[in-house]
C-alpha cells in the first residue's frame, strides 16, 4: 500500500524513496517553493510552518520553523550546495532542538518514472553515532516536524 521506503545504508546513511503521480518538475518545485512547501511539510495535525525561507540557489539559505500553535515548536536551518532543476537538490541541514544537531548532508533526486516521479532522498550523517541518535530520537522531533507521538490520529491521516 505505502509507496514509501526508509532504509539505513552502511554506517552513516539513511535513504528514503517515494513515488509521486506528477512530473519531476512539479515534485521539484514542491520542494523549493515556500508557498508549496508550507502546504505539506507539516508533520502532525495542527502543526504549521509560519517561517519558510528557501533561497534555492547554491549557497542559498534554508530556514523552516514549525509551531503547534500552543507555544511548542522548533526550527531547522540549512544551506543549498548545488541545484539541478528539476532533477537534483543537494543541501545540508540541522535541527535546533534548541541546540543544533550535527549537519545532515542531503541529496534529493527526482527521476521520471512512467508518468510520475521517483524521489530518492539520501541523507549522510557525520558518523554512525549521529545517525543512531537521529533514528532513535531526532527524527521524531524533526526530520519533517515534531512527531512527538505517533498516535492513531497521525496513522489515520487520510491518503
Amino acid at each position: 500500500m505505502t509507496k514509501l521506503t526508509l532504509k539505513t545504508e552502511g554506517d552513516t546513511h539513511v535513504v528514503v524513496t517515494r513515488r509521486f503521480a506528477a512530473k519531476p518538475e512539479a515534485v521539484y518545485r514542491a520542494h523549493v517553493e515556500p508557498a508549496l512547501i508550507q502546504k505539506w511539510m507539516l508533520g502532525p495535525p495542527g502543526w504549521t510552518m509560519p517561517t519558510c525561507i528557501n533561497d534555492a540557489r547554491p549557497g542559498g539559505k534554508i530556514h523552516y520553523a514549525w509551531t503547534d500553535g500552543k507555544g511548542g515548536g522548533f526550527h531547522l536551518t540549512g544551506e543549498f550546495i548545488a541545484l539541478s532543476p528539476f532533477s537534483r537538490l543537494e543541501h545540508v541541514e540541522r535541527m535546533h532542538l534548541p541546540d543544533p544537531t550535527p549537519d545532515n548532508h542531503v541529496v534529493t533526486t527526482f527521476t521520471p518514472d512512467n508518468n510520475g516521479t521517483l524521489m530518492t532522498m539520501r541523507m549522510t550523517l557525520p558518523d554512525a553515532e549521529t545517525r543512531t541518535a537521529m533514528l532513535a530520537t531526532g527524527m521524531e522531533h524533526g526530520m519533517e516536524a515534531s512527531y512527538v507521538r505517533l498516535e492513531a490520529e497521525i496513522l489515520g491521516t487520510p491518503v
Partner: peptide, 8 residues
C-alpha cells in the same frame, strides 16, 4: 518513521 513521513 515511515508512517510519519508518509503523512507528509
Amino acid at each position: 518513521l515511515r508512517e510519519a513521513l508518509e503523512a507528509n
